[in-house]
C-alpha cells in the first residue's frame, strides 16, 4: 500500500511559515518506516530536551520543532562541522493516518513518532469458511 508521507519542498516551507525565534534552524535527518499498523518516523534531534519539543498535526500537515539552547559559548573554534540551533521539519501526511492517535517519545537525541493507520487501511485477515 502506498501511504503518502512526503516532505514539503523547502521553498514552500519558507514562504508559508514565519518563526518567532531567530537564529539558525536545522532540518533533522529522518527515517520513515512503514509497518503493518503504523508509520514510524525517527528524527535525529540531538541536544534537545524532551519538554522543548513541539509536535503539531493540523490539516494533514505534521510539524516537529525542537528547541535547542545555545551551547559552546566560550572559547575559540578550531573546527566547526555543525551548527547548533533549533530543529524544524514539516511533513504532509496522508488520510490513511489517524491524526488523533499520533504519539511520540524522545530518547538519546532521537525523536520517535508513531503514526497509526486508520482502521480501514490496516491489513485484515479474512477467514475462509469451509463449505
Amino acid at each position: 500500500m502506498a501511504t503518502d508521507i512526503i516532505d514539503k519542498p523547502a521553498a514552500t516551507d519558507v514562504a508559508t511559515t514565519e518563526h518567532t525565534r531567530t537564529g539558525p534552524m536545522y532540518r533533522p535527518d529522518v527515517d520513515i518506516i512503514e509497518r503493518p499498523d503504523e508509520l514510524t518516523v525517527l528524527a535525529d534531534m540531538p541536544g534537545v530536551s524532551a519538554d522543548e519539543i513541539d509536535i503539531n498535526f493540523e490539516n494533514g500537515v505534521l510539524t516537529i520543532h525542537g528547541k535547542v539552547e545555545a551551547r559552546q559559548s566560550d572559547g575559540s573554534f578550531l573546527r566547526q562541522e555543525y551548527g547548533v540551533g533549533d530543529f524544524h521539519r514539516t511533513f504532509n501526511v496522508s488520510k490513511a493516518i489517524d491524526g488523533t492517535a499520533i504519539s511520540a517519545e524522545y530518547a538519546d537525541g532521537v525523536l520517535t513518532l508513531h503514526l497509526p493507520k486508520v482502521e480501514a487501511v490496516k491489513p485484515h485477515k479474512i477467514a475462509v469458511k469451509a463449505s
Partner: peptide, 15 residues
C-alpha cells in the same frame, strides 16, 4: 552546517 552522510559524527572542536 551539517555534513549529512559524508562524515559521522560531525564534530566541533574549540578551546
Amino acid at each position: 552546517g551539517s555534513c549529512g552522510q559524508c562524515t559521522f559524527p560531525p564534530v566541533n572542536v574549540w578551546e
